[in-house]
């Protein structure tokens, strides 16, 4: 019985792992296929996954198009994503600290109001937000991408989850030792919450790396455009350049996957230990 259960557990784990990986693997391999090979294999065989004829042509096409300097778009996107991530780490963790650890009148109400911001779909407030950003004179500037994104209720909610595990006694001990609240936040809470912060930071970074509709609307100058907007131009009315799209998607995904693989040991693995000990 025990052994069957064990076997079943492994089968499930491996099956889910395959489902998680296959689409990504297929994308990366597809990027190395010549055009005519892309939709050729339809039965389960080796070449469904592995290209017959390996080619770099899709990548060459991608990077040799001088009207779409992909490197530049990646730089722009990195600049925006990193700025947003840094700001959001600061502002969101501050708010989360107050909501989870500090006592103040109206805390419940304020938190509820914050949460309500999660409910409204961003597509609806896009036009009023555009008008606002326009009034600030931020159209066509990275400010329009960075500043409104610096605070995220989702991130605050996420961090509150983890901050709640820090025992208040620990904070009060710090207080009695003469530390100020900012000091406690900086010296006690943040250091013990590194995995949670990395989780939040990664999600924020990804959100910016994926951003499409908002940058499309507020950035006019092509030299300031973001990566996903550039990728979208490979789909047009006349034809969709699938090879190029898979290559572009690969280029957009692989650096993030590598960043994630590097970071995961700091949080996917160690988030485990962040539990109670604080």
């Amino acid at each position: 019985m025990e052994r069957i259960g064990h076997l079943l557990k492994w089968i499930v784990m491996i099956a889910v792992a395959l489902i998680s990986l296959l689409p990504i693997f297929w994308m990366v391999m597809g990027a190395f296929r010549p055009r005519q090979e892309l939709f050729q294999y339809v039965s389960l065989e080796w070449h469904l996954f592995i290209p017959v004829e390996w080619t770099l042509q899709n990548f060459i096409d991608l990077f040799s198009d001088s009207s779409k300097p992909l490197g530049r778009f990646i730089n722009n996107t990195l600049l925006v994503a990193v700025s947003v991530t840094l700001l959001s780490l600061l502002f969101n963790s501050m708010a989360a600290f107050a909501f989870s650890k500090l006592r103040f009148r109206g805390r419940g109400v304020v938190f509820a109001v914050f949460l309500s911001a999660l409910v409204i779909p961003g597509e609806v407030t896009m036009v009023p937000t555009y008008l606002l950003v326009h009034a600030f004179g931020w159209i066509d500037s990275f400010r329009a991408l960075i500043v409104p994104a610096a605070v995220s209720v989702f991130s605050i909610f996420l961090l509150v989850q983890f901050f709640a595990d820090v025992p208040r006694e620990l904070l009060e001990a710090g207080k009695i030792d003469g530390a100020s609240w900012p000091g406690i936040y900086a010296k006690i809470v943040l250091p013990s919450m590194v995995p949670a912060l990395i989780t939040m930071g990664l999600i924020t970074f990804l959100g910016q790396w994926d951003a499409y509709l908002w940058p499309l609307i507020v950035i006019n100058d092509e030299s300031k455009q973001m990566l996903q907007v550039a990728i979208a131009t490979f789909t047009n009315l006349q034809a969709t350049e699938w090879g190029k799209i898979l290559a572009a998607d690969t280029v957009a995904s692989v650096p993030i996957l590598i960043l994630f693989l590097f970071l995961q040991k700091y949080y996917v693995q160690s988030i485990v230990n962040s539990g109670i000990k604080g």
């Binding site: 502002f91 969101n92 501050m94 600290f97 500090l102 006592r103 304020v110 407030t125 409104p148 605070v151």
Partner: peptide, 20 residues
């Protein structure tokens, strides 16, 4: 503590008020 709490929440609150 209350004053500190409001200061901690302030940047997020301003941003949300403005952009959401």
């Amino acid at each position: 503590e209350e004053r500190a709490a409001w200061l901690f929440v302030l940047p997020a609150a301003i941003s949300l008020a403005l952009f959401t």
